[in-house]
Amino acid sequence: MSPGRNVVIEATNLHKSFKSTSVLRGVNLTVEEGTMLALLGPNGAGKTTTVRILSTLLPFDDGRAMVAGYDVNRQADQVRSIIGLTGQYASVDELLTGYENLVMIGRLYHLGKAQAKRRAAELLEQFDLMDAAKRAVKTYSGGMRRRLDLAASLIAVPPIIFLDEPTTGLDPRSRQAMWAVIADLLAGGTTILLTTQYLEEADQLADRVAVIDDGRIIAEGTADELKGRVGTERLELSFSRASDLTSALAVLDEESAQVDDERLVVSLAVEGADDVRRRLNALHDVPVQITDMSLSRPTLDDVFFSVTGSVQDDNGSAQHKADEGVTAA
């Protein structure tokens, strides 16, 4: 943690059970002022539960949850007056119009009437909802609803924002737009806790990433640190003959190469397009037939594999080489 930054969101040893199911088993995380932490984890890991606790919606069994120095349990009102929450499912009023929704939320944040109206109009324009402003929300598409929901969280310009899987289910264009908004909020000094299932998203936006699995934070660091554990992108080359594969390997002489003898696939760690070209050039003079080629980015699965593979090490900091059923060359 860099000195001089205040910790704005802090969860210490959070425990939460629903009936007898233990959902959070000691979650620790901190978010510094003006930065974004991505809470990365698969379905059911406890992301929503964590966000709901930190945003005062859910009581918990043990531990401590502080936002801006206020206890979310005992000082919920103080916390609520400075946070914006965009839940996993849009929470907007279906019977009201988009405009009415925003004005209502603005007034419930205790903006003046005129200010709430001005801000509502502004946000509708920024989120490309002007045409639908006077329509009941029940006629909105899923993407429009999401945007309105986010706009509602921003109406009072809260300094702290929780975003629970804001891009899940969005088409690529809407996802890009959402990322632009988030980047914008960060540039404006907002502190953000975002949850996601996509490593790519965490990588794009977050200062730090915490990986959550089965109610526990299993890794924490910058996106680069995490990716360092899984390696970078991988280039996969497929061959039709085992002899081709062997010749190719001889030329590549690559220690990161992983070989799947059954599928006749070689996979290499690469860094960027130039690197890909260099590898392919190396194969230029060798009489082998490459039947297929693909580039894959490390996924959440890779991170998990890497992290759970190295958890036995003392503090999880050891490097670990992924080898999912692939034998190292």
């Binding site: 000082q75 009102d77 103080q78 400075i82 921003l154 310009v157 809260p158 300094p159 632009a180 404006g188």
Partner: peptide, 22 residues
């Protein structure tokens, strides 16, 4: 597009609830 810069809304500060708000 900026979601913050057009507005002159002050960032809220943490406050306990007031009766007039209710």
């Amino acid at each position: 597009m900026s979601v913050l810069d057009q507005t002159r809304v002050d960032r809220p500060s943490p406050r306990p609830r007031r009766l007039s708000w209710t």
